[in-house]
Design a protein around this nucleic acid. Structure first.
Lengths: 138, 138
DNA sequence: CTAGGTGCAAAAGGTTTGCGGTTAA
DNA sequence: TTAACCGCAAACCTTTTGCACCTAG
């Protein structure tokens, strides 16, 4: 890992430790940016760290997300997926193959809100077909 | 209920029955438009129909949603909420009190998508403070 | 040294399902 | 009449938690 010191400082500033498990989990998310679920992260982590537990994967993902090193991505009721892309972006959900893609951030044009309502974020979730699946559609 | 015949036909066309339970559940959603969870619908339904089961509430909500009479609303990992407003609209989630409001549909201005990607829907979820909660903020 | 983390197993919480009896159409 | 549905209880799946041991800082 290239910038552990960076991560370490980031976490230390919040009284949170950089453990081997968290390091590995973060590396997995950085390496293969396919928005894996906790179970998928667990399966990948076990290959190099067979003693890691699923509970630790859940706890670590939560800790990393809470400290801004990961983002959680939820689609309907499906298992939460994780994303190491910290830049402003939107998610595209392919309705055929279920894959999630990071795409250029979409802006929301708000309609009229009732008086007194204050918007902090507007999350845009795109649903459709990815290039592979729209090809199959012909 | 005023237009059961309408609903009945809608469902019949899909080989789905309009039962007393489904009728009641739909009436609950139409009457109090606060986006209740399945459990909340169950509690309300039990008052007039004490023998109804939670499983039936879940199954009925699912059947009604699958047939376009209800919409499901998911926020993060919280229990699914249900919405009888079939018109085009967006949802506003109050981060303080947790309430969900229907608001005027927000439009999404898509960024550039990779070639071959086709967007069917762009769901915009607004998060912030509702008028009651932003007042408390002063 | 010690607060915070790990692994394990058990529990929680929402949702779905199998089954025998019931009912809308 | 009969396929679809109901109520009940058990199962399912993801996620969280309690606890004894361990380790990063």
């Amino acid at each position: 890992m290239e910038d552990d010191s960076n991560i370490s400082e980031l976490l230390a500033a919040r009284g949170i430790r950089l453990t081997r498990q968290r390091e590995k989990i973060l590396a997995i998310l950085l390496q293969q940016r396919d928005h894996p679920t906790a179970s998928e992260v667990y399966e990948r982590a076990k290959q190099k760290m067979p003693s890691i537990s699923l509970a630790t994967v859940y706890n670590s993902l939560e800790a990393l997300a809470r400290n801004g090193l990961l983002k959680q991505v939820n689609v309907d009721r499906a298992p939460t997926r994780f994303c190491a892309n910290l830049e402003d972006h939107s998610h595209f959900f392919c309705e055929r193959c279920g894959a999630i893609y990071d795409v250029e951030a979409a802006a929301a044009q708000l309609g009229n809100l009732p008086p007194g309502f204050v918007v902090f974020h507007a999350d845009v979730a795109l649903k459709g077909l990815c290039s592979t699946c729209s090809d199959l559609n012909v």
